[in-house]
Amino acid sequence: MPAITFEEFWSWEAAANLLPEVLGAFFKVTLLVTVVGTLIAVSVGMLLAVLTQVAPGIIARPLRWVMDVIRMTPLIVQLMFASFLVPVTWDLLWVGTAVIGVHYSTYMAESFIAGIRSVDRGQWEAARALSLPQGRTWRAIVLPQALRATLPALGNWTISMFKDTPYLFAISVLEMVTVAQQAGNSTFRYNEAFTIAGLIFLAASLFTAFAVRRLEKALVY
């Protein structure tokens, strides 16, 4: 390995020039996709989880299979697939966000199902003994408890989703890593671009992990 000096490897000037652009893409795209994607994943995931639990087998079984296929195949390929399916006028940023959200909704659904199953049978029985209607039992008793049990997993999936946003590269959405790569292409300073992108990811991941832990503590009964 030929030794290179730090100056050869790292130019503060190049880094300073790149930072606003990369950081801008982080806030404008990466963060946005993560937040909206999480909202989609949580709501669709909860819907799927409840559906697989209450729908008759003839609906629930195929549904679970479709969820398995989505969960077990590459997000990148799904993004490309969706980008060719939609009309060309559609903004691929939102198409990509929806695909990421739906992809992760299958993971969240699995976690929700585990959370629903972890709710003590006695809770269902008490709700029935009080004659609470099914809908109210789900909404007021089972789902709040399931959600609590699921929260750490949801946090992890969100972090995971966040780190998957560079897959949007595949459909040419200008998220942070794509911007870094393009900046690298034009300046031939890939190292600063990718290092900055990596550090932003690292900082945001650590921050989210910390926030999730705080949230968990705040939700203890």
């Binding site: 809770q123 029985e125 008490a126 009080l130 004659s131 609470l132 007021a140 408890q145």
Partner: peptide
């Protein structure tokens, strides 16, 4: 019915446990 293991709803306060069914049923 009163159960061996109480089966109170842990996500609700004591009073909400008691008022839940009268209000919603």
């Amino acid at each position: 019915m009163v159960f061996q293991h109480f089966n109170l709803f842990p996500n609700m306060s004591v009073i909400d446990n008691v008022t839940e069914a009268p209000v919603h049923v």
